[in-house]
Structures are given as structure tokens and as C-alpha cells.
Simulated assay, not measured.
Amino acid sequence: MAAGDAFEELRELTLRLRAECPWDREQTERTIVPHTVEEAYEVADAALAGDPARLHDELGDLLFQVFFLSLLLEERGEGDLESVARAVHAKLVRRHPHVFGDAEARTAGRVRERWEAIKIEQEGREGVFHDVPASLPALLRARKVQRRAAAVGYDWPDLDGPTEKVREELHELFAEIERSGRPGAETEPDERVAAEVGDLLFTVVNLARFVNVDPELALRATTGRFVERVELAERLAAEAGEAWTELDLDAQERWYERAKAALASGDRS
């Protein structure tokens, strides 16, 4: 089946759901967008997991979100799926003059520089941090802000800058922790410690940007590995007749290292 036919069938399905499903009839942009964000993260998880079948499935869920939100625009006479597609087509052509015009951009870095310049010169974007959504996850927003600053030349010339800045911020954080001590459980953090934690996270995001690592995806992957290792460690301990929650930290750490080694070797049994 041609892609156009598949898209038309999905559009007709979206129309029918909007008309006949009680849940779909009640939805607005505000109620749908949380689902859109969730689907985007599920696409990211599938891509990071290297699971083509799951990625295929999650991309379909995300595509439906685009169709549904476009339908909401159409109902108000403010656009439709066709206008959305044509607008993004025109924008991508405009932002790739090195492909569709006479401009030259021989590196990915130069493409990004031209991309930001076109936004300002041709699209009327104003300010260094134009259109950076406040609703972005904090790590992604920090990276986007840093990229915007770099686009106007406010950036380290090489990796030494962000590397040294991480060391500096880590030292400052430790100094504030030593000054304030550890707070009691469920109490307000020391304001200066909180500020230094934020500074350290911001500089780590900057370092990640310099080594082409998406901090949001990297942290999600690390968190996933930690969950997988602890769950396996708990199971291995249980198989040996030991209750994970009753073990001291040293014993838990030994099971954790066994789980880590097992997963590294591909043994999840």
C-alpha cells in the first residue's frame, strides 16, 4: 500500500474516533498533549533500547498524536494535516540552503550555525533564547539554552573549558555541603547547597554537549541500567534465600556487583 493511502486511512480512522468515541470527543489540546509527550518518550526509550519492532510500534502511536492534534486545528479552521505537512516542508527547505540553494555547509556544526542564523534573519526570531519552551525537561532545556548561547559565540573554545568548570563547581558544592552538613529527612535543603547542585548539573550538561551526548537520554539510560541491576540483584539474593531488604549495604553491594557482571555477560537468568 502506498504511504498516501495509509495516511488517508489513518486520517479517516482519526475522524471516526473523534466522532464516535466518547473519550476522543472530549479531548482538547491541553488534555492530549500529556499523551503526546509520553509517546515521544516511549519512542526515545525504544530507540535507545535498539528494539526495531518496539520503535515501529511507538512511532505509530506518536504519528496518531500528530493526526489527532491536526484534526483539532482543522475543527477550528486554524489548519489541518495538509497545512502542517506543507509548513514543515517549507521550513525544512528554508533551513537547508546548503541542500536546496547555493549556500555551503560542509560540517554538521556549520549546518547548526546556519540553522540558528536563519531563524533570526528569515523567521524574525528575537533574542538569544527565542522560543525555548519552559516546559522542556530541565536537562533538555539547559542544553537548548546552551546551544542558543553558543550560536551567538558565547561558548568555550574547546573541551578544556567545560571540563575545568565541572571540577570547579564540584569543589564549590563540596565546600557548601561541608559548611551546612547533611539536612534531616524531608526538610528544606540549604539554599546555597541547592544553588551549587544546580550549577554543577548545568556545567555537566554543557560538558555533555561538548562530547555530543544528550544528557536527558544518557541519564534515562543510566537510570534504566540501575533499575535492571537492582531488580536482578534482589532476585539473585532471593534465590540464595536472602531477603534484599534485610541485607546490610555491603551485602547488597555484593549482590549488585554480581548482577552487574551477569548482565554484562548477557546472562539474565
Rank of each mutant, 00 (worst) to 15 (best):
A3V: 11
E9Q: 15
L15M: 09
L17S: 02
L17P: 01
E26G: 13
T28K: 08
R30C: 03
V33A: 07
A40H: 09
Y41W: 11
Y41C: 06
A44D: 13
A49N: 00
P52T: 00
D57L: 07
L59H: 03
L59I: 12
D61S: 01
E74F: 01
R76K: 15
G79E: 03
V88Y: 04
A90D: 13
A90E: 13
R95V: 04
H98T: 02
V99G: 00
F100R: 02
F100C: 00
R112F: 10
W115H: 15
K119C: 12
Q122L: 12
E123Q: 08
E126M: 05
F129P: 00
R141D: 01
K144N: 06
Q146K: 08
Q146T: 02
A149Y: 06
Y154L: 14
W156V: 10
D160E: 06
G161R: 11
K165H: 03
K165N: 04
F174W: 10
G184W: 01
A185V: 10
E186I: 05
T187S: 14
E188S: 12
G198Q: 14
E216M: 09
A218Q: 08
L219C: 01
R220I: 07
E231V: 03
L232R: 10
R235H: 09
E242W: 01
A243N: 06
E257A: 11
A261D: 13
S269V: 10
